[in-house]
Each structure stands twice: as C-alpha cells, then as structure tokens.
Computed example of a mutant assay.
Amino acid sequence: MKKIFFIVLVSVMSSVVMFSQDDAGGDTFRNTLNLGQVSNEQPANATFAISYIAPSSIDGSKYLYDDWKNVGVLETGKNKKYRIENLNYDVERDAFVSKISKDSVLVFNTVNFKKIVINNKNFKVVDKVNENGMMFMEVVGEADSFSLLKDYKLTIREGVFSPTKGKGNDEYVISYKYYVQRNGQITAIKFKKSELLKIFGSKADQIKSFAKKNRLSFNKDKDVKRMFLYLNKIS
C-alpha cells in the first residue's frame, strides 16, 4: 500500500510545541495547536516531522495503543526529560508520534533520546538484531548484568475471500518477540517459565519461590516485571 506523506522537517521544537518548566524542576513540553508559542529555552537537536495520515483501507491500527490519551516522558542522553501528551508508538516506523489533529501527527526524531516511558512501558534504544542501526524495544525487566526486552513488529494479514462478499479488507497485526540483552549482545528467548528461570541464573530458585508465593505468572509481562524488582532487591 502506498502512502503519501507531506514531511516538514523542523529544527529545535518550533511551531507546534510549547516548552515550559514543571513543578519538579524537570523540562516539560506540551502539544499545542496555537502556532508560534515556543519559549526561549528549548531541547537541543530535537527535530521532528509533521506527517499527514493518508486514508487506508486496511483494518486495525499500526499504533501500539488504541487511543491517544497517553502521556510520555522522553529522556535524552544528557539525562534531560521532556513530557509529551497524545503520545503513541508507530510500530511500522519504529517511531514515537504525537497526534496534533484528526489527520496529522508529529513524528519525533528520537535519535538523540535514550529512553521513552509511556503508560508505564519503558522503551530504550538498542542495536538492531543482525542489522546496522538502532531501534526501540520495550524493557520488560532490567538487572545489573542483563535486560529482558520486547520487540514489536507490524505485519498485514490478507483479507479472507467470501463467495458472497468477495475479498475482505486486509488487517494490521501487531506481534512481538522477546530478547535478552547481555554484555552488548541480544539473543532471542522464548517467553516461558523454563527459559526465564535460566536467565535468572543462581537466583532462579529464589525467583521461583517468590513467584509461587505471590501467584505470579511467567507468561505475563507485569508479573515478570515484579520478578525483576525482587531480583534487584536480593542481588
């Protein structure tokens, strides 16, 4: 499917984003449709593009979240944090976007960001698996020597043919795989109890007991996150 995007590259947060200081002293910027409202202080090298969404006959969505009522925090390599509203993750582009109108989004050039948190999901930049370049992966759990990562992918499922209705619409499908990052290396892993216990190494028995005591599942992200929190306490 061909999509036409009108891209406008903008340097250092001009036109559509207003920057301010929050109560905690951190840097904050909010989307605004009142053009031209930009404060004197701006995040360095934070360019973005305005992308107009082309109509699509494909069912489903290429965005990770069903709606845009999401608030995210972007953290740069210099540990500066910026707050963004209406944030979503475009799985097809591997990019974070913010909706500014019914038919357009801001596509953030996140090359200068090291971490993004949205709806309690923590994403970080990692080396692409068997490729040159970088990509975002969700951090399911993180310890001193390794991390458990989740990589989202977008595919298109072909519409089913019906003798009475003809061929149905194609559909976006978001899938994911898990990886372990250790010593700069990323290795695929099956998200199941036996594989997860292996990565916990000498602490596996303690993690197993903790999971049993708290009725945690090795097949749920939120439960595995709790296991990592416990791991960091006992390490």
Rank of each mutant, 00 (worst) to 15 (best):
M1T: 13
K2S: 08
K2T: 13
I4V: 10
F6T: 15
V8T: 15
V10N: 06
V10H: 04
M13V: 13
M13P: 10
S14I: 10
V17M: 03
F19L: 15
Q21H: 14
Q21Y: 14
D22Y: 05
A24N: 11
A24M: 08
A24R: 13
G25Q: 05
G25D: 04
G26W: 13
T28C: 07
T28W: 09
T28H: 10
T32R: 09
Q37A: 12
S39H: 13
S39C: 11
N40M: 14
E41M: 15
Q42D: 11
P43D: 10
A44W: 15
N45A: 14
T47E: 09
T47Q: 08
A49W: 07
S51L: 12
Y52N: 13
I53E: 09
I53F: 05
S56P: 01
S61P: 00
Y63N: 04
Y63E: 02
D66C: 12
D67K: 07
W68G: 04
K69G: 13
V73C: 09
T76F: 00
T76L: 02
K81T: 06
I84G: 03
I84V: 09
E85A: 09
E85H: 10
N86W: 07
N86F: 11
L87A: 01
Y89N: 03
R93H: 15
V97Q: 00
K99C: 02
K102H: 12
K102T: 14
D103Y: 12
D103A: 10
D103C: 11
D103I: 14
V105F: 09
L106Q: 08
V107M: 04
F108A: 08
F113G: 02
I118Y: 08
N122M: 07
V125Q: 06
V125L: 05
V125K: 03
V126K: 03
V126C: 03
K128F: 07
K128R: 06
V129K: 05
N132R: 09
G133S: 00
G133C: 00
G141C: 02
G141F: 04
E142H: 03
D144N: 12
S145E: 15
S145L: 12
F146V: 11
L148P: 03
L148K: 05
L149W: 06
L149T: 12
D151Q: 13
D151R: 14
D151T: 15
Y152Q: 06
T155W: 02
G159H: 06
F161E: 11
K165S: 12
K165H: 13
K165L: 13
G166N: 04
K167T: 14
N169G: 10
D170V: 08
D170K: 08
E171M: 06
Y172L: 01
K177Q: 12
Q181F: 08
N183G: 10
G184C: 06
G184N: 05
Q185C: 11
A188Q: 08
F191C: 00
F191R: 01
K192P: 00
S194E: 05
L197R: 02
G201T: 05
S202V: 13
K203L: 10
K203H: 11
K203D: 11
I207V: 01
F210H: 05
F210A: 02
F210C: 01
K212N: 13
K213P: 06
L216A: 02
S217D: 01
F218I: 05
N219F: 14
K225T: 09
R226P: 06
M227L: 01
F228K: 03
L229E: 15
L229W: 14
L231Y: 13
I234N: 01
I234V: 04
S235R: 15
